[in-house]
């Protein structure tokens, strides 16, 4: 199968997120890392490819700045092609705008299976998997794992809350939002990526963008954080009551 993995990078949450005076993310001063779920999707794609000699994996990223290393890393891990969709894009590109570009590219390439992370930490206006599928009119499922290839279909497990799940069969072309790969995403050594940078090249393809609905963000702000637990004292009965209340409040009790 012709598999595409849509990957993007997101701010590294390890670092403090800084805001500009206008209340926007100070993207220029931040470090970006591949979205962890996209890493899972890439791993799942590579596992599928390893189990099926005829499959190819294309890693696709929109050139919002500095995505080369991420794509070379995907190549070093075993992807066959690294595609950079170029155009007038920047770090603040919304997911809706991304989905337009990605859907257009996927449509022209005719991928059978499109994998991406189930979500990313910056999906304010929707998750890529559903957005791209909606634009393509393709079969899709999110929060899935354990993908298996058929001849003109794929199967996977979709997870619901409370331990429920379903096995789905999707006709290709299909878009999947991967929750977790069958195994931890593989490590790739620094020198392997460096060698890739020397020996391989990325395909730069002009990204076709079209109008997409945009949201107006009034402000971004950090939640009030406490650095110490709120203490509930030492009375066992009261503590137990409080914990049960908290569980109820947070909808963590099985109904």
């Amino acid at each position: 199968m012709k598999i595409a993995v849509l990957i993007k990078d997101v701010p590294d949450l390890v670092e403090e997120l800084e805001l500009t005076e206008e209340g926007r993310l100070a993207v220029d001063d931040m470090s970006f890392v591949p979205s962890e779920w996209d890493d899972q999707a890439l791993e799942e794609a590579l596992i599928l490819k390893e189990g099926d000699a005829g499959s190819t994996v294309t890693a696709v990223a929109i050139d919002t700045g500095d995505v080369d290393n991420m794509l070379f890393t995907a190549l070093a891990k075993g992807a066959d092609r690294g595609v950079k969709l170029v155009g007038d894009f920047n770090r603040e590109m919304s997911n809706r705008a991304r989905a337009e570009v990605l859907a257009h590219y996927c449509h022209t390439e005719g991928f059978d299976l499109i994998l991406t992370g189930v979500q990313a930490i910056d999906d304010l206006d929707g998750q890529i998997a559903g957005l791209v599928a909606g634009r393509l009119g393709a079969a899709h499922a999110s929060v899935v794992r354990d993908v298996a290839l058929g001849s003109t279909s794929v199967t996977c497990i979709q997870e619901y809350s409370g331990g429920k799940m379903a096995e789905l069969r999707l006709t290709v072309p299909a878009v999947l939002g991967i929750q977790a790969a069958q195994k931890t995403p593989r490590y790739v050594t620094v020198s392997k990526v460096r060698q890739m940078q020397k020996s391989a090249s990325l395909e730069e393809i002009e990204g076709e963008s079209s109008e997409a609905p945009a949201l107006e963000i009034r402000r971004l702000y950090p939640p009030v954080a406490s650095s110490h637990a709120e203490m509930w004292g030492d009375d066992v009965e009261e503590l137990a009551d409080r914990i049960v209340n908290l569980l109820e409040e947070k909808k963590l009790l099985r109904s």
Partner: peptide, 23 residues
């Protein structure tokens, strides 16, 4: 924002061209 909501919300938004907000 459950499995169904994540799946449906984004796809529906893309199909209908309506704005969407997650989380």
């Amino acid at each position: 924002n459950s499995t169904m909501g994540m799946d449906l919300g984004a796809a529906l938004a893309a199909r209908t061209g309506k704005p969407m907000l997650a989380y």
